[in-house]
Design a protein around this nucleic acid. Structure first.
Length: 462
RNA sequence: GGCGCCAUAGCCAAGUGGUAAGGCAGAGGCCUGCAAAGCCUUUAUCCCCCGGUUCAAAUCCGGGUGGCGCCUCCA
């Protein structure tokens, strides 16, 4: 598989360090609020990558952290009159509620910063011992310039970075480029004991420490949003490589931004959407489908209208799947049709080919549409059960890589609906179309769509 | 100032040297008692503009125009 590596600015053939196994680290949320649609993109996109790698037979060890101690956490906890610990606990639970709903597979490990303070302190100590860090009265900083390769991910020359650096409130740093590894405790802030006194970790160090603890010195894939390239990921590289003396991540993947109605999402513009909000209006799979219908590195725009388009497109795929489900109930046993099997294999290969090319999910989805069209044409009432099942299986298998087409039909009202359908069928036989239409309209108003087919009546929920 | 990204039909979106995938919306047809779903046909003489390279460019190069991102804690 080819992946675009931010580090080299090239698409590269992906070869994991250890055969058959992939180690992946993705920067997770700061748990001070529900996550928003912009956060959801990397979660969904890299979940698809993980699923695909697993589909190809790799054992994927995937780590996604929770940042549960930082300035935003402290600020929010104070605003709400609660503790940072309680706040974190609450929004970690809310993260899982939304992420599970979106079909985002849980990571192998979900470490929290506050539960890895020891690893963080160890790493800072190591950096201090090696002369990369210095202590200023309980605040510990990393000397960016001591790391000769600083800037290699963002491809920024050091002096340019410096020229652009904002004026920092902290005057105790030796250099503008330096960043905090450990922050001295301020009044009423949570703090842990350390060799430098009571304090808490800086933001960047937690990812370095947790990646190291759970995945080792060198990991295969590190991913996150484009805005994390600098300084967060740049700093992670500096910390990890200086502490460990080994390359940190071999492939750096970054997803593009989401705009809302063509503008950057921000609270002040009032165009801020949490996933919780959107889930109230749209199916989780429609959100996935929307996210994956463009390439992960392209910027995308989010709007209700585009969600509606995504929803309708996904519906087309579901209609195909439902039709197969319907056919399978009445199909006769018999050998699977070779022509159909061949067709299925063709599109499966094309789908995989698309995914192999830097996770081109947009192309892959188009292959799903091609596949659905062929199935709709080739698989009919006269197909054997084996043919129908093979087709259904293909759709579900490929959809599963993207995390779509996994929904089972809800048949809870089945008996009542079937009864009405029988009544209507009888009415149609008597050419009493008025009654037949009345029943159909009645069901429609309850969200049940009827479809008359040559081999019986099919129904589905809207 | 530095480093980048993007510009393809009404909308979304692949394609990055060989003559424009796919979806949504629209139009026509087939099927249907009528629908729904599905299928077929149709919708960009052309890929922001101007030059250049080439037998050949949406795709490469140069120059514009327009939009956007990062440059210390925002996915």
């Amino acid at each position: 598989m080819k992946l675009y590596n931010t580090l080299t600015r090239k698409k590269e053939e992906f070869v994991p360090l250890n055969k058959g196994e992939v180690t992946m680290y993705s920067c997770g949320p700061t748990v001070y609020n529900y996550f928003h649609i912009g956060n959801a993109r990397p979660f969904i996109v890299f979940d698809a990558l993980r699923r695909y790698l697993e589909y190809r037979g790799y054992k994927v060890i995937f780590v996604q952290n929770f940042t549960d101690i930082d300035d935003k956490m402290i600020k929010r906890a104070n605003e709400e009159g609660t503790t940072v610990a309680e706040l974190g606990e609450r929004f970690i639970a809310e993260y899982f509620a939304d992420a599970d709903a979106l079909g985002i597979k849980r990571a192998t490990h979900h470490p929290r910063a506050t539960e890895n303070i020891d690893a963080i302190i160890d790493m800072i100590k190591k950096l201090e011992d090696k002369g990369y860090a210095y202590n200023r009265d309980g605040d510990v900083y990393f000397s960016a310039k001591k790391f000769a390769e600083y800037g290699k991910l963002s491809h920024q020359p050091l002096d340019e970075l410096e020229a652009g650096a904002r004026i920092d409130v902290s005057e105790q740093k030796d250099d503008d480029m330096d960043f905090a590894l450990w922050k001295k405790q301020k009044p009423n802030e949570p703090a842990w004991e350390s060799p430098w006194g009571m304090g808490r970790p800086g933001w960047h160090i937690e990812c370095s420490a947790m990646a190291n603890r759970y995945l080792g010195k060198t990991i295969d894939i590190h991913s996150g949003g484009q805005d994390l390239i600098f300084p967060h990921h740049e700093n992670e590289i500096a910390q990890s490589e200086c502490a460990n003396g080994a390359p940190f991540a071999r492939y750096w993947l970054h997803n593009g931004y989401i705009n809302i109605d063509n503008r950057k999402m921000s609270k002040s513009l009032g165009n801020f959407f949490t996933v919780r909000d959107i889930l109230a209006e749209f199916e989780p799979e429609a959100i996935r489908f929307f996210m994956l219908s463009a390439h992960y590195r392209s910027p995308i725009n989010f709007s209700k209208e585009l969600m509606l388009q995504a929803k309708t497109g996904l519906e087309r795929l579901y209609n195909c799947a439902r039709n197969l489900e319907f056919l399978s109930k009445q199909a006769d046993a018999g050998q699977a049709d070779d022509t159909v099997l061949k067709m299925l294999a063709t599109y499966k290969n094309e789908f995989i080919e698309a995914m192999e090319d830097d996770l081109n999910t947009a192309l892959a989805i188009s292959k799903l549409f091609d596949l659905a069209r062929e199935i709709n044409t080739m698989v009919t009432e006269s197909s054997t059960a084996q043919t129908v099942t093979s087709a259904a299986q293909a759709l579900k298998e490929l959809g599963g890589i993207l995390g779509i087409l996994q929904k089972e039909d809800d048949n809870s009202l089945e008996n009542e609906i079937e009864e009405l359908i029988e009544k209507r069928t009888a009415a149609r036989k008597d050419k009493n179309f008025a009654l037949a239409d009345e029943i159909r309209d009645k069901l429609k108003s309850r969200g049940i769509i009827l479809e008359d087919t040559p081999s019986g009546v099919k129904w589905r929920k809207e």
